[in-house]
Every structure is written in structure tokens, then in C-alpha cells.
Design a protein around this nucleic acid. Structure first.
Length: 476
RNA sequence: CGAGGCGUAGCGCAGUUUGGUAGCGCGCUUGGUUCGGGACCAAGAGGUCGUGGGUUCAAAUCCCGUCGCCUCGACCA
């Protein structure tokens, strides 16, 4: 136990020093390392493997909805950015601009994309002519750059990886429907793949995407009760279509602007699942995205038959479709236990002479940190069942916590007390910007999403009749 | 961008107050004994002290600049 404490002390305390815990965990588990340029990170193989699993799951969902992948250029002419007034105002402070190339100053500066609405709008303007060309649904997996003031691995970096989907429809209703459908897709993905409960809803005017008519967000509650925006979908109306001439001739022969929408999730999702599921020992990775789902640790490997039995089990489980690693390194078993627990591997199987003799395997579950002896002969079935149980348990635990920590308030003091206690606070809002600002000033909390229905009576700030019921929280 | 902290071996740190041979723990290499919760013995390798300038006989140490990281605020996927 003394040794265990020593190990644990390598990671900051999750309850009292959560930000440091996060930094310790992402670096020590080799998910990321810092890049040489401010705000950049290297996503290392263990972290990138998680991203690849996220990509694979999301990509198949997009394709099932009729979305095609494409790739648009990194560099955007500065003049594109200025075509949509709100858009340029929102993004201007955080764009990186290329002014020189080929040893000379450029005629027109080029923006390193912070998002691609403008260049995709421009291209779609060329591709859309007739109602027969619609709907047009495209997505790209790429990097974007936003020059943020302060940065943190996965949560906010100058450059990050994401997917951005962009679609054009003939009518506003279709585009709005797609905006909500994508939000639901994200929610389902968060639940079933990341085992992460989320709250979805419309964003306030203040929080919406620069240039959008309406923005919807998916917010997840982190271990410390703060919120993390984990995905957004935007309905643009005709704003970008008008700025970039996305026009089509309708069935009635009338020339009209299209209606666009966009949606995106980023590598921030990796930060989200870490801060949702992690514990004092480190990462707890959801089985669907864990790069290693099962690690096999041989015990007394030099004893007769142990190495062979481990290799055989590894082969069987791989054949059954699980992502398995056999840790046959020279480290001691205790060292391996701690290492793989810190790295969040859902299941560890210990196999030693005693197990082999009895036809058993010792199975450790990362979510409960419990060990059980199970039949070696049924390894495939037991592993599948355990992984499924872990996924379910992770979601259930996180969901329970989230719901326990959503409280109501009808005064500013109540709201402050709520967020101070690490809660999301549901409260009424009159809809005016001044009251929203007041909440931020008073409680350092922002409107995360608005409830679909307005259940509150009065505004938490001014006391006037409530127009929206809003979830307020401190956010990352 | 404001306030604070930190940059010394792969990692974590001491050394800086009071200038004088570059240190410790872990890790790494080799050999051996081990192996059911971070094993042990022995022998080794490894450092432009973030970086540029200045002061000095002499700088990790003092002075000026600069870059980066962390924390907290203001801005954001």
C-alpha cells in the first residue's frame, strides 16, 4: 500500500487539484507532448489511436446520412473572411495570417483557416446551380488554427484536429432539420462511443457561432462540475449563401439562395472523455475508443507454459475482434498493473501458473478496480461481456453524477452557490444580454444551452418574466 | 493580453541567497537473481544549466533582453 501511494503521488490529486491532475495524466500516459511553438501539441500514438477510433465511428455515421468526405485548402484569401460581417468580427482576433511566401510579400494576405465556412461557401457557390444539385452534404477531416490566449492539451490549442461538415439545402426547414439531426447524431455518438452523457440545446445570441442564425451545442459535465462544449451545429440561414453567391434555380424557375448549416467536433472530445471518466489512478478509457481494450500481463513468465498460454490467449482474443496487447516486457507485474491502469485500459487479464493450472484467468476491471477469477475457456465471451458492462457502467455513473449536479436557482446568489458547489444551474432568463453579462460577472458562469421548454417563472437576474430556461455553468 | 510561478541528464528535482571541478533519485545500458500490486545486486553511459548579450580572472549562480511551459483572470471547438 505504501508503494501504491507512492505511485499515486505521481499524479496530482483529482479532487483538490483537478487542472494539474489533467495535465499530469495526459502527459504521463503519453497521449500528448508539447510542441515547440506556443499552444501546439504533438498527439502521440496512444492519443492519436483514440482519435482514429473516434473518426472511424463518426465517419460511418456521417456516411449513413449521405455525407461525403472532401478536402478544402488550408489557406483562405483574407477577402473571403470579410464577406460575412459577423463572421470576420468573431474570428479576426484569433486568426493567423500568412503575409510572406516565396521570399516576397503577398499581394493579398492569406488566413490559415480557423474554420472553413468561407472557402467552402465559395466553392459551393460554383457547384450549386440547380435544385437538382441539392442537398449538398460534405465533410472534411482537417486541422484548423485559432490563436488562443491560453492553451491546454486537447481542450484548447492553437492548432487542433476536427471534422467540419457543411451542407446546403433548398429550404430553411431542411437545413434546420439537418442541424438538429446532426446534434442528435453527436449526442448518440457521445453516449454510445464515448460513454459520455451530454446536455444539448440552443445557444444564446452571445454564445452562438459568428455568422450563424442559430447555434446548438452539446455540453458535457467534467469531473469538477465545469462544462465543456463538446460539439456544435449551426444553422446559417442564407447568411453565407448570400455572401458567397450560393444560388440555385428552383423547380419554379426562380433563382434563390441556398440555406446552409455546419457542424463540428474536435480532438477536444479526447479531453472531454478524460475529464469525464478519469479517476485518481489516471485515465479510464471507454471500451469503444480505447486503443488497447485488453492487456494481458503474464505472471512468472519464465515458469513452464506461462508465455505460451499468454500468447495463445492473446491470439484468441485478437481473433475475436478485440484490441489486445500482451505486455511481455521485463517490468515487474506490479509495475505493469499500475502503468496500464494509469493508461486507462478497460480490462487487464493476469495469467500465471496458478491460473493456468486451474483453467482460470484473473480479470481486473478498470472502472470498478475489482478482480475476478473467470474461466479461461470462456475468455472471448467473458471479455465481450465485461467490455459491454464497462461501457454501460461508465455511462450510467457519469449520467447519475451529472443529474445529481444540476440544480435550480431563482436568484443570483443561488446561482453562484450552485456553480461554486460544482453544479450546473438551471435558471430563468429574460433573454436580454445585460442579464446574461451580469451572470458572468457575478458568478463567472455562462449560459451553456437553453432548455427546449421554458419551465422557469422569472429571470434569475432582473426578475422579469422568464423567456428561456437556461443551464448556466462555469466552462472550460 | 494582465498577475504569479517555473526552465539544470529521458523524467522529477537540489545547487542560485554568499560567483570558484555539474549533483541526487528514478529511468536507460550490460550481466545475474527475481516475478500474484511499481523487485534486488553489481558494473556503466548520459548535461550547450531554455536562449542572446553584459559584468568578472572566473557565471547554472549577478545584470539586461528574449523564448517556452504551468496556474489564475479576460477571449474560445
Amino acid at each position: 500500500m505504501a508503494k501504491d501511494n507512492q505511485f499515486v503521488s505521481q499524479i496530482a490529486d483529482i479532487e483538490t487539484d483537478f487542472p494539474q491532475w489533467y495535465t499530469d495524466v495526459v502527459v504521463k500516459t503519453k497521449l500528448v507532448d508539447y510542441g515547440p511553438v506556443k499552444g501546439t501539441m504533438v498527439i502521440r500514438p496512444y492519443g492519436y489511436a483514440i482519435w482514429e477510433n473516434i473518426q472511424k465511428e463518426l465517419d460511418s455515421r456521417f456516411k449513413a446520412m449521405g455525407v461525403e468526405n472532401a478536402y478544402f485548402p488550408l489557406l483562405i484569401p483574407m477577402s473571403f473572411m470579410t464577406k460575412e460581417a459577423e463572421h470576420v468580427e468573431g474570428f479576426a482576433p484569433e486568426v493567423a495570417v500568412v503575409t510572406h511566401a516565396g521570399g516576397a510579400k503577398l499581394e493579398e494576405p492569406l488566413v490559415v483557416r480557423p474554420t472553413s465556412e468561407t472557402i467552402i461557401g465559395y466553392m459551393m457557390g460554383k457547384w450549386v446551380e440547380s435544385w437538382r444539385d441539392l442537398p449538398l452534404r460534405q465533410n472534411q477531416w482537417c486541422n484548423v488554427m485559432r490563436w488562443e490566449k491560453t492553451t491546454r492539451p486537447f481542450l484548447r490549442t492553437s492548432e487542433f484536429l476536427w471534422q467540419e461538415g457543411h451542407s446546403v439545402f433548398a429550404t430553411g426547414e431542411e437545413a434546420e432539420t439537418e442541424t438538429l439531426n446532426m446534434l442528435r447524431l453527436y449526442e448518440e455518438f457521445a453516449k454510445n462511443v464515448l460513454c459520455m452523457p451530454v446536455l444539448t440545446g440552443r445557444k444564446t445570441e452571445k454564445e452562438k457561432f459568428a455568422g450563424a442564425v442559430a447555434t446548438y451545442g452539446m455540453e458535457a459535465m467534467m469531473h469538477d462540475g465545469k462544462s465543456l462544449q463538446s460539439g456544435t451545429t449551426h444553422y446559417m440561414g442564407q447568411n453565407f449563401a448570400k455572401a458567397f453567391g450560393v444560388q440555385f434555380t428552383g423547380k419554379d424557375g426562380v433563382l434563390e439562395h441556398g440555406y446552409t448549416m455546419s457542424y463540428g467536433v474536435s480532438t477536444r472530445l479526447i479531453g472531454a472523455l478524460i475529464m469525464t471518466h478519469g479517476d485518481q489512478r489516471g485515465l479510464v478509457l471507454p471500451p469503444p475508443v480505447a486503443p488497447v481494450q485488453v492487456v494481458i500481463v503474464p505472471i512468472a513468465a519464465k515458469k513452464e507454459g506461462v508465455t505460451e498460454a499468454c500468447a495463445a490467449l492473446c491470439g484468441r482474443l485478437q481473433k475475436a475482434g478485440f484490441r489486445v496487447k500482451l505486455d511481455d516486457s521485463e517490468n515487474s507485474p506490479g509495475w505493469k498493473f499500475n502503468e496500464w491502469e494509469m493508461k486507462g485500459v478497460p480490462i487487464r487479464i493476469e495469467l500465471g501458473p496458478r491460473d493456468i493450472e486451474n483453467g482460470k484467468m484473473t480479470v481486473f476491471r478498470r472502472d470498478t478496480c475489482e478482480k475476478n477469477e473467470l474461466d479461461l475457456a470462456a475468455a472471448e465471451r467473458e471479455t465481450g461481456a465485461s467490455l459491454a458492462e464497462i461501457s454501460e457502467n461508465l455511462y450510467r455513473k457519469a449520467e447519475k453524477r451529472m443529474h445529481e449536479r444540476i440544480v435550480d436557482a431563482d436568484t443570483l446568489d443561488g446561482l453562484l452557490k450552485g456553480v461554486d458547489g460544482g453544479n450546473f444551474v438551471r435558471a430563468g432568463w429574460c433573454g436580454c444580454r445585460a442579464c446574461e453579462d451580469k451572470v458572468k460577472e457575478f458568478a463567472q458562469a455562462t449560459a451553456r444551452v437553453m432548455d427546449k421548454e421554458n419551465s422557469a417563472q422569472k429571470c434569475v437576474v432582473c426578475g422579469k418574466p422568464s423567456v428561456h430556461t437556461v443551464l448556466f455553468a462555469r466552462a472550460y
